[in-house]
């Protein structure tokens, strides 16, 4: 049984990779199976976790009847199937959008604006003898200046109400260069980890399946 499973997994692995050559029937088969199996998988998981675990058990065992509001919103969603009253299905949607907007405002404001601005408020250097920052290397002082100036000019780049011209345009340019360095750094950092994913699959093909490497 175990061997059958390994062969099946190898069949699907090679089928997906065959897409790199061109679209073909093997890939289409893998794709169709993947779509069907995974859609079913998620429905089953949502059913047992959310409807059975989160809703039914909490209502019957802990008497959390307020969850019925969630279920009513869910039922309203299905009213879309009855055209004359289909417009009611917008209510749960408005609920979701309103709640998302409310939650995101505070979360992003606290974690992205407040925390990031606070972290940027650092001394660039120190002229006081004996201060650890006094003996910092020129590289780290330049680094501190780059962090402050880069954040500032990066924000200039995102400014919408002023044309990127003259000195302001120059700052915006430095801003986008800083952002591009960030993207490059992130890109370079990810390349290696993506390669290891492939090594993992090759390990399965040549090790677990073909037994050529141990």
């Amino acid at each position: 049984m175990e061997i059958f499973g390994t062969w099946l997994a190898a069949f699907f692995t090679l089928g997906i990779i065959s897409f790199l050559y061109r679209d073909n029937a093997w890939y289409k088969l893998c794709e169709s199976i993947f779509v069907g199996i995974s859609a079913g998988y998620w429905f089953v998981t949502l059913f047992w976790d959310n409807i059975h675990g989160l809703f039914w058990e909490r209502i019957t065992e802990r008497h959390d009847y307020w969850l019925l509001i969630g279920a009513s919103l869910g039922l309203m969603m299905l009213l879309r199937l009855i055209p004359p009253i289909g417009w009611i299905s917008r209510w749960p949607l408005s609920f979701v959008v309103g709640a998302t907007a409310g939650l995101y405002i505070i979360n992003y404001f606290a974690s992205n604006v407040m925390v990031q601005v606070e972290n940027t408020l650092m001394p660039l250097f120190s002229a006081k003898f004996g201060d650890p920052l006094f003996s910092a290397s020129p590289y780290s002082i330049v680094g501190n200046i780059v962090v402050a100036a880069g954040t500032f000019t990066g924000l200039v780049y995102f400014f919408f109400s002023k044309e990127h011209k003259g000195a302001f345009g120059g700052m915006a340019k430095i801003g986008i260069w800083t952002i591009m360095i960030t993207f490059g750094a992130s890109f370079g950092y990810t390349v290696m980890s993506r390669m290891s994913l492939l090594i993992g699959r090759m390990d399965f093909i040549f090790g677990d399946w073909l037994g050529l490497i141990r």
Binding site: T120, S126, K128
Partner: peptide, 14 residues
């Protein structure tokens, strides 16, 4: 805030 804060921090530190 970034400009004022960084300048204040540097002067205060030095």
């Amino acid at each position: 805030v970034i400009i004022v804060g960084v300048v204040a921090a540097t002067i205060s530190q030095s």
